[in-house]
Nucleic acid binder design. Structure first.
Lengths: 338, 338
DNA sequence: CTGAAATTTGGGAACATTCCCAATTACGGG
DNA sequence: CCCGTAATTGGGAATGTTCCCAAATTTCAG
């Protein structure tokens, strides 16, 4: 049971002045006698007054808070995006509230409601892997609350988006695998409704095509990003009559899981099977063998998305701009492929 | 520029009833005609009404929000605590706002102000490594806002705390190093003002004493947790005339850094020098060689701390209870020591 | 039918603040 | 010393909601 906090009215009464004057003193308003201001400031300090953002937000219709909706936090990718975002937000005087959808569509809807009732000034969203209907996200637009997508973006909505060049990253990576002599390159692909999954797969296919390697559908496994299933897929792949000599996983956690499984079966990496991931998560360099992957500027994504969002917040609805920023990736070659 | 949102008054006007009635319909108040309620609910849905938590919090003097102040987020330890906390908070109907102090005392003070002006119902705090004065944290207590410490706790304040048995963890770990035949065990210790640093060091010393190994002060290096300095200390240690045969680092990130440095110098782990850490961060199992460490139930810490906090929030100030929960650790032996 | 009780509704204060407009006070030139 | 202007202050509406109390309406026993 929180006790009542000090208000400007308490200060006003104590100094026998009006709350308007106290408000002016506290907000650097020009129309105030410096002496009065000094007295107010001193008493405020002494009483340990803290302004109540709730009422300020209520009257100004601005909370200086942005919301972030991510599928999960255990994944280091989203944590890092949040770190980048928080920093940019903090610098611009914004707070951040974070909601996890746990890759669950209904929870994403409930997250939207939380953001709406908290009256955030804008939201950053990366959708769940099961989101196929976007009505809940369109509610932000309808209410004039800017939304910016990152990573898992929504094609249907014309709003700012921050992504990386997934096609090119996957292309470079696959080409690298070909260059080291691999020919039967398997791909643990992501769910087809996510644009990043499709782009990465397209990059993979384009590289094979360029090097005139026949596409073997058997080597392309659509996978729902549930790590528990990786074992099944890897087992399936290595028991194929014509088994792969490389596995390109949709992301680093998956690739690391693949490595663990291959190691447990005494399959040599990369001699027997090379393994590569995507994202360059912060421990990918340390695992054994170190993982070849495609680095994304993850914190940068959070930062850019947040800056885009705050810019949007400061515009009038009719001046909203739907820029899509595509950031570059970088191939990071480590021992899992050489 | 956010546009005006739908309010209960809009609904009231549309249905030609009073805002009180609308409020009752929306809050499951018993004194309302079911028909009226149905009409209100339907219209609210249709107009996409979302209650304004700002005004609700203002009148109820309750935000259903807890604040978390942590030194940093890059560290996987704190991220994991937050995951545990968020889950427990969410289940109890609380939102979470997170502030990073970046291990900086002044920023911690500013974080306190943010929490105070956001009128959080309670706070979870893990202090910076430089915090030696606690006046800013005592302000919460003075204002009747419950505070719960975890990991880096404050001795001076009699409030709930959640810690792990650092002494015992360090003791078991050091004993393990002794059992595998190591005698000159170095310790990269944390800052002395942090209780966890002291406890871990005491555990280390107690194990040496139990096995009648002389304490060599030269092997105990107080270190400020700034990873960049690890290289200097490791270099110093391996250039000692009587160099160590094991290094026990205060935490996993430090231990991993130590491993990288030793590997770069072609020092064999664990044959020449064994390495151990503390926390069992989520990638410690994957590095090469896999790191021996002391596992803490990190998510559990966040969960327990949050539950303690919410319990405290629901009590009257005079019924506050200052329980300290000590959770158990577990020695995880991996190849970096065998 | 009547009147009392029960149900349902409305009005308005309260929450802490900002901001506009009006009122008061201070200042300075003639 | 007076009056116009500038500086400073106060009053009160507004923000969106809850909740108390009173008013209105309905229900039903007699």
């Amino acid at each position: 049971m929180k006790s009542r906090q000090v208000t400007i009215i308490d200060i006003a009464k104590a100094l026998n002045i009006s709350k308007s004057t106290v408000s002016r003193a506290l907000t650097n308003h020009p129309n105030i006698n410096p002496e009065t201001k000094k007295a107010v400031l001193e008493l405020a300090q002494e009483m340990d007054y803290q302004r109540n953002m709730l009422s300020i937000s209520l009257v100004t219709n601005k909370t200086n808070t942005i919301g972030i909706i991510v599928p999960e936090l255990v994944n280091s990718y989203f944590s890092r995006v949040i770190i980048g975002s928080q920093e940019a937000a903090y610098r611009a005087g914004y707070n951040v509230i974070i909601c996890q959808s746990n890759e669950n569509y209904d929870q994403e809807i409930s997250n939207v409601n939380i953001m709406l009732s908290s009256r955030v000034d804008g939201v950053l969203v990366s959708m769940t892997k099961e989101t196929r209907n976007f009505d809940h996200l369109k509610r932000f637009e309808k209410k004039g609350i800017p939304i910016v997508f990152f990573n898992r973006v929504c094609d249907e909505m014309i709003v700012p988006k921050v992504i990386v060049d997934d096609f090119e990253g996957a292309f470079k990576l696959t080409e690298h695998l070909i260059e080291i002599g691999k020919r039967r390159i398997a791909h643990l692909a992501g769910p087809d409704n996510l644009i990043i999954s499709r782009k990465r797969k397209e990059g993979y296919l384009a590289a094979l095509k360029k090097h005139q390697i026949d596409i073997d559908e058997e080597l392309i496994i659509p996978y729902d990003l549930n790590l528990d299933k990786v074992k099944i897929y890897v087992n399936h792949l290595i028991n194929l009559p014509n088994k792969p000599d490389a596995i390109f996983a949709i992301n680093d956690p998956t690739a690391i899981e693949v490595i663990q499984i291959l190691k447990s079966k005494k399959i040599r990496i990369p001699t027997d099977i090379a393994v590569a991931g995507f994202s360059n998560d912060n421990y990918s360099a340390f695992i054994d063998p170190p993982l070849t992957t495609v680095a994304q500027p993850v914190e940068e994504i959070g930062k850019v998305a947040t800056e885009l969002l705050i810019d949007q917040i400061n515009r009038d609805v009719k001046d909203w701009k739907a820029i899509t920023k595509m950031l570059d990736t970088q191939l990071v070659i480590r021992n899992s492929t050489q």
